[in-house]
């Protein structure tokens, strides 16, 4: 009864078919089966945000979703967002502002930040801090991250007023 289950899904635009054990969570599936190790695991309880990915356009905790639940879903990881160029400006703002130190939180931070910027084009600092409130960073103290997101928001608004 605990046998593997066949799933078919799209990951970063590619069709993926796999047989997975029910207990395998999405984070481990991405990391260990698909070798997409940009999705990090920091707690496995939904608390740190390092494993944040996009499922059907919504950010979710990949440690709190089973791989078997992704049947027919469209998953996007940090590798996908990077390759498509969707967050190139955000990444460049992170680089300029040194908004990452060890970088372990960064993929999840970028996911959460892009999610915010899609929903609210001109968030103030408090709104940014609030939206990131579930993403832990031990290194930066958050300010540089908030700065980078704020400046990206400004720049994007400049582009399309």
């Amino acid at each position: 009864m605990t046998a593997t289950v066949a799933i078919a899904l799209s990951v970063n635009g590619e069709l993926v078919e796999a047989n997975v054990l029910p207990r395998l969570n999405l984070a481990d599936f991405l990391r260990e089966h698909l070798k997409l190790t940009g999705t990090h695991v920091g707690c496995e309880h939904g608390v740190c945000g390092a494993c944040t990915v996009r499922v059907n356009g919504d950010i979710v905790r990949s440690c709190l979703m089973l791989a078997v639940q992704t049947q027919n879903a469209a998953i996007e990881t940090i590798e996908g967002l990077s390759d498509s160029g969707e967050i190139a400006d955000l990444q460049s703002a992170f680089r300029e502002r040194n908004a990452l130190q060890c970088g372990f939180c960064t993929p999840g931070m970028l996911m959460a930040a892009q999610d915010l910027l899609k929903q609210s084009p001109c968030p103030d600092r408090e709104r940014i801090r609030e939206h990131l409130s579930g993403n832990y960073c031990r290194c930066t103290g958050y300010q540089a991250i908030v700065d980078a997101i704020e400046s990206t928001a400004w720049a994007r608004r400049g582009r399309r007023p």
């Binding site: 990391r31 260990e32 997409l36 190790t37 940009g38 999705t39 990090h40 695991v41 990881t77 940090i78 590798e79 990077s82 390759d83 990444q91 992170f94 680089r95 300029e96 040194n98 990452l100 060890c102 970088g103 372990f104 960064t106 993929p107 970028l110």
Partner: peptide, 21 residues
Amino acid sequence: VPRPNLDRLMQGRGLYVSDIE
């Protein structure tokens, strides 16, 4: 000056020990 090699970490292409197989 920006730190070199940040792209690796920002694109999820770093190599942390937890990634090693």
